[in-house]
Design a protein around this nucleic acid. Structure first.
Length: 191
DNA sequence: CATGGGATTGACT
DNA sequence: GTCAATCCCATGC
């Protein structure tokens, strides 16, 4: 997707990313779950302002923000809104579509449903690491591209974000309604 | 300079 | 359901 796609309110981008494809080398999947984060609310890393850690978030839209979570996992985000605003969409789950054997080897499991059903799982399955922080999502090596025809009109469910302790009430989690590949079930409404 | 806390996962009771 | 693993970085002394 072009940078202009990401240079919009982060909640809109999160919703519109459902159904888009993430590829890294020989592995690819359709985004079935994503969450929005914005520097105006305390669950966002950028809430603390511009620091070494958040520099990518405040940078130009359309880049990858990759950080280490719980000392173990790498989590992938797409930086949104204009430079100077700290906002990003966390990619939380993919439906695997290509390189499934490679994903199985990297994850050490068989079931397709568990290969990319979580933000730390999908980076492991796709071979994404901290070295990808700041890279361009239009140029690669991680590439996000438009919805395939079958995903053009996918119904999107809305829910509260997962795994956070602040601003838990915001309905900023989006997912492909009824998908078997989510990190956790949806509790609320469908748009 | 020391410390505390995660946008998680997988193993275990 | 509970819990440990593990490390970067923001904060506070």
């Amino acid at each position: 997707m072009k940078p202009s796609f990401y240079d919009r309110p982060v909640v809109e981008v999160a919703r519109d990313l459902i159904g888009c494809v993430v590829r890294h080398e020989a592995a690819a999947g359709v985004i079935v779950e994503a969450e929005a984060y914005h520097d105006s609310e305390p669950a966002c890393h950028a809430f603390v302002g511009l620091t070494a850690r958040t520099a990518t978030l405040f940078g130009p839209p359309g880049r990858a923000y990759v950080y280490r979570s719980y000392g173990i996992h790498a989590l992938l985000n797409a930086v949104c809104e204009r430079e100077g605003v700290g906002a990003a969409v966390l990619i939380r789950a993919l439906e695997p579509v290509e390189g499934i054997e490679l994903m199985r080897r990297r994850r050490g499991m068989e079931g397709v449903e568990s290969l990319c059903s979580g933000p730390g799982k999908l980076t492991q399955a796709l071979g994404i690491g901290l070295g990808h922080n700041g890279t361009d999502l239009a140029r690669g090596p991680i590439v996000v591209s438009a919805r395939p025809p079958a995903w053009r009109e996918v119904p999107v469910a809305v829910d509260r974000r997962i795994g956070i302790t602040k601003a838990v009430e915001l309905p900023w989690r989006f997912s492909a309604a009824g998908s078997r590949f989510l990190s956790r079930p949806v509790r609320v409404a469908v748009v």
